[in-house]
Amino acid sequence: MKVPILRIGRMLLASVQVELRDTVADAFQQDVLAAIEKNGADGLIIDITALDIVDSYVARVLLDTGRMARLLGAPTVLVGMRPAVAATLTRMGFVMDDVYTALNIDEGLHLLQGIAGRRLGA
């Protein structure tokens, strides 16, 4: 089972539909980073709408992927987190300061375009 990665203009969209186990998580990270490396990207959107459970392992995979993507010049925005997932992660004391968050893909895209625009302007 692979995580599909779509290209929307200069942005990448990865929709996590399956539970991220070790093997899947590794492949996911590699695929995302390879895609950024190959054609470049101004940002990465990780859509986790489908995940009803995010434990600290999965949270860290997502966070690490975001950090790695940022090193390659693609800031990451996490979109579609469910209320119960957000409550559980904060309750556990998990902070995700290194990634941006947005309510949905549209807003994530908008956010990344804003960041890319500011970067060009500067």
């Binding site: 600290s56 392992y57 949270a59 860290r60 966070l63 559980t88 309750r91 556990m92 004391g93 998990f94 902070v95």
Partner: peptide
């Protein structure tokens, strides 16, 4: 006791679980 910084380690697993 765990801690916010030991993300992903046994610490967060136990201390986090206790809060849940």
């Amino acid at each position: 006791r765990g801690g916010y910084s030991t993300a992903g380690s046994l610490g967060l697993g136990l201390s986090g679980s206790r809060r849940l």
